[in-house]
Each structure stands twice: as C-alpha cells, then as structure tokens.
Amino acid sequence: MIRGIRGATTVVRDEEEEILDVTEELLHEMIAQNSFQAEDVAQVLITVTEDLSAAFPAKALRRFSDWTYVPVVCAREIPVPGSLEKCIRLLVTVNTSLAQDKINHVYLREATKLRPDLANGNKLAN
C-alpha cells in the first residue's frame, strides 16, 4: 500500500546549517516513528515558507547514505497571511503495510501548531 507521511518543523534563523540540521532531524524522527527505509520511499516533496532561502532542505536527505536514488523536490509554500513562519514541511510517499490511521505524522518545534491533534504523539514535539 502507498501512504503519505507528513512532517513539519521550524527554524529560528534562515541559515543553511540550521535548515539542513532540522530537516535531517525531522526525517530521522519520521523514519523512527514509521519504520521505513529508503527502498520503501517513492518520492519526497519538501516545501518551505517564503522566508527561507539559505539552502535547499533536500540537501539534508543526501546526508543519508542509502537515499542516493530517492527522488526529492523542493517547492515554496503559498504565502498565506498569518501562516507559520520559517517552516519546512515534508511529504514522504512510502510503500508500507501500515493502515492509514497507524501512520505517525511528525510535527516538531513551532510546527506543532499546525496539527496539534497529530503532534501530541510526537516523542520530540518540543
């Protein structure tokens, strides 16, 4: 079965290392909570808010040695007034036997505000 796993996090500063570090942390947590491997991943869509431009977060996925052939694309979020700032979102499409209601979507830092109903189960929510 193909499922989408959502994740989001925020940074304090628009700096390359911070963007890459928090993106890596988010993906690690998504993998840990949903037990998938690179071979299970069909694609990853990463979006950033318009106030982030110091780095492509997709570069963080290349820190994972077995993710060389995983298709990844970055895009910009729609700049809706009042939306969460300095936010990085991931949508990982995976092959899994997990039922949809068993998928653990991961929201870290200020991104817990996006889906408090789902973020409460996060081990690293704060």
Score class of each variant (00 low, 15 high):
56 F>R: 09
47 T>M: 05
109 R>T: 08
126 N>E: 11
96 T>Q: 04
79 P>G: 11
5 I>G: 01
65 S>P: 13
103 I>L: 09
60 A>F: 04
50 E>P: 07
52 L>F: 13
44 V>R: 05
51 D>M: 01
71 P>H: 07
116 P>I: 12
101 D>S: 10
105 H>T: 07
43 Q>Y: 06
116 P>C: 10
24 E>H: 13
14 D>H: 01
101 D>R: 07
49 T>H: 06
7 G>N: 10
90 L>D: 04
50 E>I: 09
117 D>F: 02
20 L>R: 02
69 Y>P: 00
89 R>K: 15
18 E>M: 05
106 V>M: 08
59 K>I: 07
10 T>W: 01
108 L>E: 09
86 K>R: 15
27 L>W: 02
1 M>W: 00
51 D>T: 00
2 I>Y: 12
38 A>C: 04
16 E>F: 00
5 I>D: 00
116 P>M: 10
75 A>E: 13
81 P>L: 11
39 E>K: 15
34 N>K: 02
15 E>I: 06
70 V>F: 09
115 R>F: 13
33 Q>S: 14
88 I>H: 02
103 I>V: 14
96 T>G: 09
57 P>G: 09
61 L>K: 05
6 R>M: 13
41 V>W: 03
111 A>F: 06
116 P>G: 09
81 P>W: 03
34 N>M: 07
13 R>E: 14
26 L>V: 10
109 R>I: 06
14 D>P: 04
101 D>M: 05
10 T>C: 01
38 A>R: 01
51 D>S: 03
3 R>C: 11
102 K>A: 15
121 G>W: 07
74 C>M: 12
60 A>M: 01
67 W>C: 03
124 L>Y: 14
85 E>T: 11
75 A>I: 05
56 F>D: 13
39 E>R: 15
64 F>K: 10
14 D>T: 03
119 A>P: 04
104 N>G: 03
56 F>N: 15
9 T>N: 08
3 R>Q: 15
24 E>L: 09
8 A>H: 08
53 S>Y: 07
70 V>H: 03
114 L>I: 15
113 K>G: 10
53 S>K: 09
124 L>E: 10
48 V>A: 05
119 A>K: 06
67 W>N: 05
92 V>I: 15
46 I>Y: 01
47 T>W: 02
27 L>V: 10
84 L>Q: 03
33 Q>V: 09
87 C>T: 14
123 K>M: 12
99 A>V: 00
78 I>W: 11
4 G>V: 11
61 L>H: 03
34 N>F: 01
125 A>F: 13
28 H>I: 11
45 L>P: 00
52 L>H: 08
40 D>I: 08
99 A>Q: 13
121 G>Q: 13
36 F>T: 02
37 Q>I: 01
16 E>S: 14
105 H>D: 15
81 P>K: 14
17 E>F: 06
100 Q>W: 00
72 V>K: 02
14 D>V: 06
105 H>M: 10
46 I>G: 01
121 G>Y: 07
55 A>T: 06
112 T>G: 05
120 N>F: 12
66 D>N: 14
12 V>P: 01
6 R>E: 14
37 Q>W: 00
111 A>K: 04
43 Q>W: 00
111 A>Q: 05
24 E>F: 12
24 E>A: 11
9 T>P: 00
99 A>R: 10
73 V>Y: 00
